[in-house]
Design a protein around this nucleic acid. Sequence first.
DNA 1: GTTGTTGCATTGTCGGACAACTGGTTTATA
DNA 2: TATAAACCAGTTGTCCGACAATGCAACAAC
Lengths: 242, 242
Amino acid sequence: MAPKFEPLKKEPAYVKVYNAVEANILSGAIPEGAPLPTEVELCEQFGITRATVREGLRLLEQADLVQRGAGKRFYVKRPDAEDVATATSKSLALGGATFREVWEALVVMYPPAVRLAANKFTAEDIEKLVDNHRAFDTIDADDTHAIVEGAVGFFQLIAGGLENRVLLAMLQSLNMMIRESLNRVIIKTPKAKARILDAQARIIGAIEAGDENEAAEWIARHIDDLKRGYDVANMDLENPIL
Amino acid sequence: MAPKFEPLKKEPAYVKVYNAVEANILSGAIPEGAPLPTEVELCEQFGITRATVREGLRLLEQADLVQRGAGKRFYVKRPDAEDVATATSKSLALGGATFREVWEALVVMYPPAVRLAANKFTAEDIEKLVDNHRAFDTIDADDTHAIVEGAVGFFQLIAGGLENRVLLAMLQSLNMMIRESLNRVIIKTPKAKARILDAQARIIGAIEAGDENEAAEWIARHIDDLKRGYDVANMDLENPIL
DNA sequence: GTTGTTGCATTGTCGGACAACTGGTTTATA
DNA sequence: TATAAACCAGTTGTCCGACAATGCAACAAC
């Protein structure tokens, strides 16, 4: 067998900057919230020019490891679930994810998630759901945008109450994609609002009662119901959501 | 109520570059695989200096919208599921995700995923599972690293066969975090290999038979079994995985 | 106490320059 | 002729030095 040499990395300097700073953040050497050295300081420390340092900083910036304060210099920031979700959904959408894939993911993920919710939700969490539900009731049935927001908001509250950032990030990115989808296929059926309202009520009831089977059952129906809009619109589910 | 003004954004030029190019990619004006204009061309088009253009390009680079070819200039690339997963898991880990969150997500997501697999997997997919299983059988029971890889590889194959990039991205990022976790709490129990092997066999059998209940049942047990290592190691599940 | 002023630190942008690398073309050599 | 060496053009990576714009803090003025 031929000796397998590493491609002996000669990464550009700005990547090295990125890696070096990332390592320091990761190891905790630069704690969360702490400011990064200034650009000139970094220049001196790395022994490179400012332009190069800045390119490395852009990488960190886009990686959400670091953020420009209201003031000026960068400070370390841990990526929160929402950022992760935004980036994920954006990437997936851009990657050509189809309606089918998104809906399928929804069907797969939410029923077990509400099962967890039924076991875990506090009175507070439930109250939020109820509030959201009441607000939803007051919207104009023709205001499709508001309806979409209300429907997505419900999912958001479910995801948010799970006390689990990993699940939160994943469900949230799903929610964003669903919002895209729903806004595209405008919910036209006049009954839409009523049916959503009913489903939400039952799900909330089931969670409140801690009845995970009932909750899972109803959210599955709810999702299926939402999806029906697509079938009605006669859309090809294999179309990309973007 | 006090009038609420927009923060009147005056984004720096390099952000504008990022946005402009992103928009062009998104709209399909620059199709996938097509090369971006060279840096100098971009300078001319935007009417700014090269250093600034390059900062914008770094943002695009980190956003995985664009990639440096083996040759030289950037070409457009859609983010694939793996990149998304890598970024997601990294961010979540950095965000302080705990063992509990990861395991919980695993418990929530995989049983329904294998249900899907039981309905959807082709002979080919199953063959891969079988191959992986056979290979796993041959590893040394003391080679904990190999055992972890084998266990994770099994999950990877499940995720990969679903024909769903959205689910794939999410499951894959979970897999990466699990790999981290398992490598940390080294599987010591001598029986580990045997139990994993057995569970995998049953899951594969169930998928092959299209028995989704059986498959879901066994993967749940399997996951629970893997988790037991933590209990044995007496680890605090609320510790971050990093 | 609020409002202006001033100066400092830091970032954003500029212009030009050069080395390094890649790919292709031409030329020299076996 | 075929192969290797040398050359050239295009592009990226890095550097330097400079200046404008902005935010911050301290201080002065009303």
